[in-house]
Structure formats: C-alpha cells, structure tokens
C-alpha cells in the first residue's frame, strides 16, 4: 500500500502548532525580559556559552586581519619607516642644534652675569683659534683694537678668569691663558686673605709665594688681587693640593682652574678698567 501524504496531514499540523506555541512562548519571554531591561534565563545561558567564543573569534579574526594587512601593506610600511627614520634624523639634528643653542645661551647668560659683577666696559668675543705650538697656552679671539681691545685687556668667561690679551690686531687678539707658565696673576685666598702669584702649569695652575704661616685647605677659593692688569675678585680656581715644606720660605698650592679651557667658546674682553 502506498502512503498518501496530504499537504496538512495530522502530524505536520501537530508539529506546526507545537512550533508556534513554543516559538511564541520563547518570544514573549524574550520580549518581556527586553522590555523590563533584564536578561531572560535563555539569554543568560546562551550568553555564558557565546561570550568566550565571541571573544576568541574576534581576537582570532583581528590577528588574521592584522597579519593580512601587514603583508598587503609591507611596501607602504617600509616607505613609512624610511620617512619616519628621515624625520627622526632631522629631529635629532634639530635637537642637537637646540641643545647647542641652549648651552650657548647659558654661557652668554653667565658672561652677562660676570659683566654685571665687574666694573668697566667689555665686549663679547668668540674663540676663533688656538696657538698651534703646544708649548704655549694661548687662544685667538675675534675682537681687536677696532672693538676697543688693547694689550693687557682682562679676559674672563662665565666661570672665571681666562687670561689677558698678549697682542692685538685690528680684528683679533691673542690671549695668554692663566694656565700658561708665562702667566703671572696676583691672587689671594678668599678665606685666609693670604696672597700669592698664580702661574700656569700647562694643564692647571699653581699659586706660589704663599706665606708659610698661612693655613691652607683643599677647596679654598682663589681670586685675583688688584694689580696693574687685573681687577680684584675674579675667580681663578680652587686649591687642589698643598705643597708645604718646613724649611721653605713659602707654600705652594696646586689649583683646579674654574674655567674649562677645552670647551671655551665665548669670552668677555674688558676694554676699560
């Protein structure tokens, strides 16, 4: 016998009615929960299962997408990398210029402060050369007689005494540094008021002819004493070592100059006492 299926046979009708009842019930449950702003039990169960799956799938898709994007845009990234490296190089150069300008600014401010503490007129000069022979400790500055510089003009930096002018041209002058052995600067210890003469030792300076009875300490500050060339009170350096012999007439102190002669760029040249 061949079974004849009608379009709406009894079983299909039963399934249809069951489906509609169940679907309507679930729908009403969901609508009620949604309208009251809460989650239905079905939402809670399904959410608990799906949330980690969604998170994992999303992360996986993002990772794959990022990888594909990186591969597709590798050339563009390389160009961007090159451009950024160029930019970084330019910024580094600009940064170095700014740092140099800032250092120069600080030095000029110190020079200005020094100028305000000392009497007389002065001009700012740049160091433009060093004496080629290593036997002399001299520098050349870009100010000369036309700027009012004259022989024996005192030269200072923001840190202290540099030296004095040895010879003058119209546009430049040669300056004998205090660390040159030919230099002789009358000076005194600020703490004990003991006098002496500061001469150079190529790299440092030493203060000779200090009274044997004077009490010296490391770190004592040495400044210029008033003389024919130098005004009083310009910082020369600090005492680093003390050489005292009982049978000698004087003591000698090795000084650490206040000025770093290797990094001099700008100095102040006094044009009038």
């Amino acid at each position: 016998m061949v079974a004849i299926y009608s379009f709406w046979d009894e079983r299909k009708l039963l399934v249809f009615v069951a489906l509609i009842i169940v679907a309507a019930s679930v729908s009403l449950l969901e609508i009620d929960a949604s309208r009251n702003g809460r989650q239905s039990p079905i939402d809670v169960v399904v959410g608990a299962v799906y949330t980690p799956l969604q998170a994992g799938l999303t992360r996986m898709v993002e990772a794959v997408g990022t990888g594909v994007h990186d591969v597709l845009h590798a050339g563009e990234f390389a160009a961007q990398n090159q451009a950024l490296q160029d930019k970084a190089g330019k910024l580094a150069a600009a940064n170095q210029r700014l740092q140099a300008d800032a250092a120069e600014n600080r030095e000029l401010r110190r020079l200005l402060a020094m100028k305000q503490t000392l009497p007389g007129d002065a001009v700012v000069a740049d160091i433009i050369g060093y004496v080629p022979e290593s036997t002399r400790r001299e520098v050349t500055v870009d100010r000369g007689s036309r700027d009012g510089v004259h022989r024996d003009s005192v030269v200072v930096s923001g840190d202290g005494l540099v030296g004095h002018v040895l010879s003058v041209g119209p546009h430049e002058a040669r300056v004998l540094l205090v660390i040159d052995p030919e230099s002789a600067v009358p000076a005194y210890l600020r703490r004990s008021r003991s006098w002496g003469i500061v001469t150079g030792t190529w790299l440092h300076a030493k203060m000779k002819y200090i009274d044997q009875n004077a009490t010296l300490q490391q770190g004592d500050i040495v400044v210029t004493g008033h003389g024919e060339i130098y005004p009083s009170g310009i910082l020369i350096g600090t005492v680093r070592e003390i050489d005292r012999k009982d049978n000698a007439l004087y003591q000698t102190a090795v000084l650490e100059p206040a000025v770093d002669f290797h990094s001099l760029q700008h100095v102040l040249v006094y044009t009038s006492p």
Binding site: L19, I20, V22, A23, A24, V26, S27, L28, L29, E30, I31, S34, S40, I42, D43, V45, V46, G47, Y50
Partner: peptide, 16 residues
C-alpha cells in the same frame, strides 16, 4: 539570535 540581542523578534520567523 534572540538571546544574543534579538529581543524576541526572530524565533517565530525562524520556526515559521
């Protein structure tokens, strides 16, 4: 679908 944000609008249609 409704549990993940459909608000009850999908279940009837799906079944039908």
């Amino acid at each position: 679908e409704d549990a993940l944000g459909g608000g009850g609008a999908n279940v009837l249609g799906g079944a039908l």
